[in-house]
Design a protein around this nucleic acid. Structure first.
Lengths: 340, 340
DNA sequence: TTGAAAGCGTTACCAC
DNA sequence: GTGGTAACGCTTTCAA
């Protein structure tokens, strides 16, 4: 493997000149620049990352802590991961995977060994055990998810409160006066992820201001539980029933149960679920969808951390960003308002 | 951040001794070892990865090239990623994400800059454009997926031929004499991933030796296409119809179509699909499932590459490993054989 | 069993 | 505008 020394020799310049050509941190005459660039091309030189990291004290690597919770819609986690990796490349950074199994010790490890310059944590819980460690780290960390106490932390997430409002408003506008929300799975709720609560608060605020009735029923992936919830909802509804299923996994089960009750979404019943890349394509039915915008959240998370890295931020930063959600109308053929 | 020099000073030994205590490449007296370990603990010393990589010419990082194809069941990709990352840690390695967007150039980049010591490529196509580059790389590469010409390459994948056989045998044993396979999605087939062909070959071999009729019909996520395929299959079947849907995504659609035809899997119709972590939990119905064992494939891929790294393999290695698949009987209550 | 010192391939400061 | 050179923090050879 050729080194910058080889390049310098081939181009007949000093090694430092090669470095400056590459980094652009010093004006270089057109003539020498050309010589160096030719030599680089000719030798197919690529700078050694380790040496660079050692000398510059920057790895240009960001650690991404991924969750592994079977109950968490894996497809959507993968979308985060994928978008984060791609966006990082745009900022000339790479992504190192850190699995949640390693816990807080994993964070200390990758930061301590200076394998990466900063961290992104996915699926941060309301009272995440890693937060004390995160606060103590001397590198930028961006959390996806809002903990109960976000002080001293940089957080970003979809605006679940807005999402809840939008869902209720959409259904109310379509004429429903009883709206049923199927909760997230037990496993998710038990983790005290904040968004469950934020979503619920959004739905309830909207329901109150509009004057429709909200029904919060148990969700989960257990078909019987969902069936039970559906039946309860049907019993409480006189007009066309309406369901909100923000959890992608719950949504799957709900569809099946409705279908087993002979109910066709978009016709006999309204359903709003969160858009999931795979399932969106499977929807043969004209429905609204709440888009929680995982891609946008991912992109912004990367931007934030890269900005912090650029700024060489040392002191404790603090910020909280909520990404607006949107209702996607796949079709406008929900039931017309009652009485019309 | 403390360095090994600091540790040496604190312990009253040479810097090299600290290094040897850590690496174990040299016998150390119990006494000095203790001194050094105490100093490490006390200073919370962690070796600098860049410096280590520079000096040892090993990063202990493995590049993982992930696909991003919306049509590819993202949940199962995530399972690969997650298991690979965890297994790598067992071998004291980390995983760096390389997105497929970067193409062959991405491979050259991470290897050329010596960001990682080796690569794992997921979802390798039959005639993958990256293969020439892979062959030219001077680091170990493990492919998940079997290209048409695996010469000079190290490949591993689930044994799709065995999977095909097992599905047909299972259904034939349950008394079906017409068995319908819903192909993978167009997008997958068009990529000429080898496993489509291998699976088909397995089903056909088994069908021939047992003497049942095979029907290969178009798959995909288009509900109409699946509905069409289902109807064709029903028309060709006198007894209980039987479907094989190896593609997780296709499987989702199939279930919906069958249900819309009033057919309950496990009762009026037999269905074998590939186990997907999420969907397995959603199956309320007693069915066989073909387990393509993504976790096992992932684990072995990591083991292979770590072994190669250990062996400091320079010369071109070549190997091809097929991981046995298994039929999981979630219940034995398929229809009894015809005539019983 | 241990120590000293020479790299490893960059970056960045100090001269010119 | 450019060159020389001292770090950066580790591993490993050579001596003792």
């Amino acid at each position: 493997m050729p080194t910058s020394k080889d390049v310098a020799q081939a181009a007949g310049v000093a090694q430092s000149t090669v470095s400056y050509v590459l980094s652009g941190k010093r004006p270089i005459s057109e003539k020498t620049r050309k010589k160096v660039e030719d030599a680089i091309e000719h030798l197919t030189y690529q700078p050694n990352a380790g040496a660079r990291a050692l000398a510059s004290r920057r790895t240009r690597v960001i650690g991404l802590v991924i969750p592994f919770i079977p109950e968490l819609h894996m497809a959507s986690i993968m979308e985060f991961v994928s978008v984060i990796a791609n966006t990082a490349r745009r900022y000339d950074h790479d992504i190192l995977l850190v699995t949640e199994d390693e816990g807080a010790a994993g964070l200390q490890r990758v930061v301590g060994q200076q394998i990466c310059d900063g961290l992104i944590l996915m699926q941060v819980e309301g009272d995440d055990e890693r937060l004390p460690v995160v606060r103590s780290l001397k590198v930028p960390v961006v959390l996806i998810g809002i903990p109960h106490d976000p002080s001293g932390l940089v957080c970003i997430d979809a605006d679940f409160e807005m999402a809840g409002k939008q869902c209720v408003q959409d259904l109310a506008a379509a004429g429903h006066d009883v709206i049923c929300v199927l909760d997230w799975q037990r496993e998710v709720v038990d983790r005290h992820v904040n968004y469950v609560e934020r979503f619920r608060s959004g739905t309830n605020q909207a329901a109150e201001s509009i004057g429709v009735k909200m029904l919060h029923l148990p969700g989960g992936t257990d078909r019987d539980v969902i069936a039970d919830s559906v039946d309860k909802a049907l019993a409480e509804t006189t007009g066309t029933p309406a369901f909100i299923a923000p959890d992608g996994t719950v949504q799957d089960v709900l569809r099946r149960v409705l279908s087993s009750r002979g109910l066709t979404p978009g016709k006999d019943v309204s359903v709003i679920g969160s858009a999931s890349p795979t399932l969106a394509e499977l929807q043969p039915i004209p429905l609204s969808t709440i888009d929680l915008r995982p891609a946008e959240v991912s992109r912004r998370a990367v931007k934030i951390i890269c900005d912090l890295l650029e700024a060489d931020s040392q002191g404790p930063t603090e910020s909280l960003e909520l990404v607006p959600t949107v209702i996607t109308h796949r079709s406008s053929t929900l039931r017309p308002p009652r009485g019309s």
